[in-house]
Design a protein around this nucleic acid. Structure first.
Length: 205
DNA sequence: AGCAAGATTAGC
DNA sequence: CTAATCTTGCTA
């Protein structure tokens, strides 16, 4: 079932938590790609120095101030497109950054879009990688997530048992807020992979 | 008009 | 550890 506008029209940390285990879907050129969300980050309001709304309303962050349930897509480091789901009521700038997916549909298409040859678990590992695999870019900025091309749905998958919270990745300000949610020890979660324990290594050898 | 920095990634 | 790459927002 496709998530409704009401789903996004809630406190951002609640939306972030509930997005874990939901499925991001994109239809493009008749091809459907999708994946289970396993990692997200919340960016909340002008008082959050890491949020793009920190400088107040600008041309770029306009979607953040708009109604909930729309996509905010922007170019990062001049190279990577990152996709967010806008949350909270219109005029309240906040969003959830989608950082990693476990691929479900269209894996062959994803593999073609990614130039590198990687394992399935790495196809949508990292916010810049998943937009490439899903075919999401500038054209999807402002797209209605309650429409038919780009949306998030509940497929009734069991809510992952171990949702961990930690500090957000790759920012230099607002690092004290633990607004990153992820499925613990899931292979598609970005960031440095936790060092294998001595026992795990022995077991593998 | 010029400039510094950025919600990343891959390669050395 | 660092280059790649370009838009935004700030300063002049």
């Amino acid at each position: 079932m496709k998530l409704s506008r009401d789903f996004y029209n809630r406190p951002t940390l609640d939306v972030a938590r509930d997005l874990i285990g939901k499925v991001l879907v994109h239809h493009r050129r008749g091809v459907r790609t999708s994946g289970v969300i396993v990692e997200v980050e919340a960016y909340i309001g002008e008082s959050d120095p890491a949020c793009h709304a920190a400088p107040g309303p600008t041309k770029r962050n306009k979607p953040l101030y708009g109604p909930p349930g729309f996509a905010y897509v922007y170019l990062n480091y001049g190279i990577h497109w990152l996709v967010n789901a806008v949350t909270e009521a219109e005029g309240s700038p906040a969003a959830v950054l989608i950082r990693a997916l476990e691929p479900l549909d269209g894996i062959e298409t994803m593999r073609r879009r990614r130039k590198r040859r990687v394992s399935d678990h790495d196809l949508c590992r990292g916010p810049g990688n998943l937009t490439i695999a899903m075919g999401i870019g500038q054209a999807q900025n402002g797209e209605d997530l309650c429409g038919r091309r780009l949306y998030i749905e509940d497929r009734g998958l069991p809510q992952p048992e171990e949702i961990s919270w930690g500090t957000r990745i790759g920012i230099t300000v607002g690092t004290e807020r633990e607004w990153r949610a992820f499925v613990r020890s899931h292979p598609s979660v970005s960031g440095r992979r936790p060092r294998q324990s001595a026992v795990a290594r022995l077991r593998r050898s």
